[in-house]
């Protein structure tokens, strides 16, 4: 199972990002565990200054703005 963290202050874009990943994972039939990280110390601890950020299995793959759907797909695929 992939562990995905969405880093963000809880703004609309961050919520939409989590939703997009969830939907994509479901469509692809991939089991994921999505966690929303809103603690600022934790967010900058990942070296991310632009939110939303996305961390897949401990690696930061995205920072700032809505991720593109095909990028999300590439993170999810094994």
């Amino acid at each position: 199972m992939k562990s995905i963290k969405v880093l963000g202050s809880g703004c609309k874009t961050c919520v939409n990002t989590a939703k997009l990943i969830e939907d994509k994972a479901q469509a692809l039939g991939i089991a994921v565990e999505i966690e929303k990280v809103t603690d600022m110390a934790a967010i900058v601890g990942y070296g991310v200054m632009s939110t939303p950020g996305v961390v897949v299995d401990g690696r930061v793959v995205h920072a700032g703005g809505m991720p593109k759907p095909d990028a999300v797909e590439s993170w999810l695929k094994p």
């Binding site: 874009t13 600022m40 991310v48 703005g65």
Partner: peptide, 16 residues
């Protein structure tokens, strides 16, 4: 360009 929702992490990142 940055989304206003990034103000806080940006603020912390700069001071840090």
């Amino acid at each position: 360009p940055f989304c206003s929702c990034s103000s806080v992490p940006l603020f912390i990142g700069f001071l840090e």
